[in-house]
């Protein structure tokens, strides 16, 4: 059991959770993630590590309620059953900071994808690298951690689909205008956004790293559920990723594979709603 300090709603459907998990945060490097289970009989789900307090052993997680398991997690108050991590390969840029000292870097975050962007931008700032950030959302109400990201980045540009905040349109509009300014782009968000960013950056030959978020089970390489086609070959997002060279990712099969359990997930969601209603 891991003590939950808080688990609070940060917008209509996203939550931030603070958990005591010293083993997870001790060696965390941005780019890595955690797998959690709300209760002993819960599904294992991969979540974004958004920040951590290494001294106090505290782990900050951000998640969006998209299905039964995240819904269940949003009801947690005192403790959660399992937190495993850090998992995955750390960000290539954060691991080799020295190599990127004089590189011009742009981070593109879409929706809750800004959460895994934050620790990378923060880490790089701490190591003397200032990057640009483009943050896109469907609308203003869905924006999260705006103040936090501005604390670590002096040049954040915003887009919303409906124009309710920042520029109306998509992250790719802003990126395309400035594409020649950069040596490297990191895009994290919905698969369709990462795909569109990569179509654009490929055109301009701008190296792009993406962070894949496929269906996952154990997170240790054992099951292969999270395999993505990278350069035509299956790679496991849990241990070979989650970050990959965006120009080598087969986004179309990744998009389709996310629908594998669509029907089953709907049933589980209905089942979970009933279960949670009974208890509350």
């Amino acid at each position: 059991m891991y003590k939950v300090i808080y688990n609070k709603r940060i917008n209509t459907n996203s939550f931030e959770m603070l958990v005591e998990a010293p083993m997870v945060v001790k060696k965390f490097i941005p780019g890595q993630f955690a797998i959690v289970m709300a209760k002993s009989d819960s599904e294992k789900i991969p979540l974004t590590i958004y920040d951590c307090d290494k001294e106090k052993g505290l782990l900050y997680l951000i998640y969006q309620v998209v299905g039964a398991s995240t819904l269940e997690l949003s009801y947690v108050t005192d403790s959660i059953y399992s937190v495993t991590g850090p998992l995955g390969v750390p960000s290539e840029i954060c691991t080799n900071v020295e190599d990127y000292k004089d590189k011009r870097i742009v981070y593109v975050g879409g929706g809750v994808g800004i959460a895994p962007v934050y620790p990378q931008v923060k880490y790089l700032k701490e190591h003397g690298i200032n990057v640009d950030v483009i943050y896109g959302c469907r609308n203003k109400d869905l924006m999260i951690i705006k103040d936090k990201i501005e604390e670590v980045c002096s040049n954040v540009e915003y887009t919303t689909d409906d124009g309710s905040f920042g520029e109306k349109g998509f992250v790719t509009n802003i990126l395309e205008r400035n594409v020649n300014k950069y040596d490297i782009c990191v895009a994290i968000g919905p698969v369709i956004m990462m795909k569109n960013v990569c179509i654009l950056t490929k055109k301009y030959n701008l190296k792009t790293i993406v962070s894949m978020n496929p269906i996952m089970v154990d997170g240790s390489g054992m099951c292969g559920a999270c395999r993505c086609l990278i350069d035509g070959k299956p790679k496991f997002a849990c241990i070979h990723g989650p970050e990959f060279d965006g120009h080598k990712v087969d986004f179309d099969s990744a998009l389709k594979r996310m629908n594998t359990y669509k029907e089953e997930e709907k049933n589980k969601f209905d089942q979970m709603e009933v279960l949670l209603n009974e208890k509350n």
């Binding site: 009989d41 294992k44 398991s69 089970v217 054992m222 099951c223 292969g224 594998t260």
Partner: peptide
């Protein structure tokens, strides 16, 4: 890369470790 192509490890992990064979299992 088909959606319903699995490793045996995945099927068995879902069924045994995550108890997906039970009707009320939270893992599909």
């Amino acid at each position: 890369e088909g959606n319903e192509v699995f490793s045996a490890n995945e099927i068995l992990t879902r069924i045994n470790l995550m108890k997906a064979y039970k009707r009320d299992s939270k893992t599909p």
